[in-house]
């Protein structure tokens, strides 16, 4: 009989690095895609708006588990063999991008119309309007919900176990099925997620407060 011991705790602790790496990849890729999607959503071209809206609706309705499965196994079937980290990065980027795109669209639109009009009057072109006037203001509005969503992403990286990553949740499952002490294992796992996510939440709220004061 295997007892739950220090080796198991270390194993679970080590798995945290995959949770962190996957979260970072998800955020980096998702931020780039999300920005493009947000801009497409508020673009003047009806085609871009329709396409980005359809993309966001579809991806937001698809379970992340299935995106991960299709990116790793599905593409492989079509002849594109991606390394696990690349496949996970791809799926997470597609997923996070869809959510950030929608969140950021709201933030861009929350910048008062008068700001657009004023920058029009100054003769700024579309790029300059975004770069100097709109985005700096939108980013301030966007920070709290973005960080809030990241907390959910951190927890969702657990689904990457489907393509072989032994991250925090999967490590917990493996230890659990060898030691049969689920409550102890899962409380440890929950505590570790809390340790990663809580600072993010606190930061999110601190930023929110700061922004309210600035207004």
């Amino acid at each position: 009989m295997i007892q739950f011991g220090p080796a198991h705790v270390i194993y679970i602790l080590e798995a945290v690095r995959w949770t962190v790496v996957l979260s970072l990849v998800a955020f980096a890729g998702g931020a780039v895609l999300g920005l493009l999607l947000a801009l497409a959503r508020v673009s003047r071209s009806i085609l871009l708006r329709a396409f980005s809206a359809a993309y966001i609706q579809t991806v937001q309705g698809t379970p992340l588990l299935i995106l991960l499965f299709l990116a790793y196994f599905g593409l492989s079937l079509l002849g594109y063999r991606l390394a696990p980290l690349v496949a996970a990065g791809l799926a997470l980027t597609l997923y996070v991008g869809a959510f950030l795109g929608e969140i950021w669209r709201g933030c861009i639109q929350a910048v008062p119309r008068t700001q657009w009009e004023a920058s029009d009057c100054l003769g700024l072109n579309r790029f300059q309007q975004y770069a100097y006037i709109i985005l700096p203001q939108a980013i301030r509005i966007a920070t709290p919900p973005t960080v809030g969503f990241m907390v959910q992403v951190v927890k969702n990286t657990s689904l990457a176990s489907v393509i072989g990553f032994v991250e925090l949740t999967r490590a917990g499952q493996i230890v659990n099925n060898s030691t049969f002490q689920p409550l102890m294992v899962f409380i440890l796992v929950a505590a570790l997620y809390f340790a990663i996510c809580y600072p993010l939440s606190v930061a999110s709220r601190a930023l929110e407060r700061k922004l309210n004061v600035a207004r």
Binding site: I2, Q3, G5, A7, H8, I10, Y11, Q173, I174, V175, N176, N177, S178
Partner: peptide, 14 residues
């Protein structure tokens, strides 16, 4: 699959 003891599992040294 390492979660179907005793077919597949991890030992006390992981």
């Amino acid at each position: 699959d390492l979660t179907i003891s005793p077919y597949g599992k991890v030992d006390d040294k992981m």
